[in-house]
Design a protein around this nucleic acid. Structure first.
Lengths: 146, 146
DNA sequence: CCGGATAATGCAATTCATATGCAACAAGCG
DNA sequence: CGCTTGTTGCATATGAATTGCATTATCCGG
């Protein structure tokens, strides 16, 4: 009796690409990478295996609510990597990973205050990176300078 | 020369419902509420006006990555309301709003350290609320205890 | 107060990510 | 080695969000 499923070639392959892609990728990215490596795989299979991968703690959905590819969900490989959150530049889309213990501690504190046992969190800081701030309002996003 | 568009009845109506619904609603919720109030409105119109509303700071997209309705984006009314973040119970789906200044301060700090000018953030704490913790492992969700 | 320029709306049809039914197939177990 | 059961692929379905086009309403100048 297997715990979560059978160990198939496809799953091994998915494990590999998720690890290889690491940063922030979409299901489509996985397929493309696999295809480039010679392993053809149907999107269906990828989609069907994503829950298993996330459930197993191999990857997790990033909170960039569909900004990356064409509205596709983005994931990142987390297994064996230290936890981190993200800073996102609104202008250039640059993503910076950071981790800050004090922040985590405070989050625990908040959860405790509300009677919650904290399991995980999604934190995304949105701002303007130094380069873009210096570069001036070149790629002005909002339009309204407020 | 108008700044952002014309003031139409539909937009006023959307303003109202967003304010009325307040908490966490989907575009579909807006349509349904409007319909209940006698104002028929096409989804197209709602979708086309959402960017205007968010751009104007009336509403914002919540970060619950499509969990609410059937995968639809959720929004909340923020104009004139104090900023807050969310605690989400993984079992019962309960959403608790909170705000914690120290947390905001630390986020500013993180951004500064990385040379970012912070504009906004999304923070969502995921855990198990007191009720569900007491209620026992009734609706066990994850399975893998990490 | 009116009439034209132009943006907003509704409808239908489209796009795109993700899910599902079903038949073929492969992994694991005896 | 053969059976059971989970997995894969294909085609198709779903459902949110977007777009083209004709119609209508808003704004603005007269």
């Amino acid at each position: 009796m297997n715990e979560g499923g059978r160990l198939t070639g496809d799953r091994e392959a998915l494990l590999q690409v998720s690890c290889m892609l690491g940063a922030h990728f979409t299901p489509e990215d996985m397929r493309r990478t696999l295809a480039a490596g010679g392993s053809q795989m149907a999107m269906t299979t990828i989609y069907r295996n994503l829950p298993a991968l996330t459930g197993a703690g191999i990857i997790r959905r990033t909170t960039f609510c569909e900004e990356d590819d064409n509205g596709a969900a983005t994931y990142e490989h987390v297994w064996g990597r230290p936890h981190h959150d993200h800073l996102l530049c609104q202008r250039c889309g640059k993503k910076v990973e950071f981790s800050y213990d004090a922040l985590e501690v405070l989050q625990e504190e908040v959860a405790r205050r509300h009677g919650f046992r904290l399991l995980s969190h999604h934190l995304e800081l949105i701002g303007v990176c130094l380069d873009c701030a210096r570069g001036g309002p070149a790629g002005e996003t909002g339009g309204a300078p407020t």
